[in-house]
Amino acid sequence: MESLKVYILIANRMYNDGVRSGLGLAVENHYAYPVIMNGEFPSFSTYMSENIAWVKDMEGQVYSCGAPAPDSCVDEEGDKLIDEISLEELGEAMRDADFIIPYGLSKQTNEPPPACAE
């Protein structure tokens, strides 16, 4: 089966499950590139960080577009697991994509209230 290049765009803080979805494709021998847009990062639980590392191990990559990659998601050597990519670089890279998946919902207008901010 042909390995496909799949970009998963995550624009909303509630939809970082797109990383797991990308990992699911990676283990099916596809190249998964989850992209977290404009700093809509998840909380980096052990589970999330391991998934991000696993995507990388499977020859994919999790990117941050529009915000610095966070220091809180690093490998055992302390190197950042998430690479930064500009919007223009992302567009050019996605021209070669087999599939582009804008995942879940778009960015919210309002900041989250304390009840769900963490």
Binding site: A11, M37, N38, G66, L87, E88, L90, G91, E92, M94, R95, I100, S106, K107
Partner: peptide, 17 residues
Amino acid sequence: RSEPNDNVKTLVGILNR
């Protein structure tokens, strides 16, 4: 699915080139 924002418009411009 909704009105495209500036990021989407930029990406679409590159993809459509």
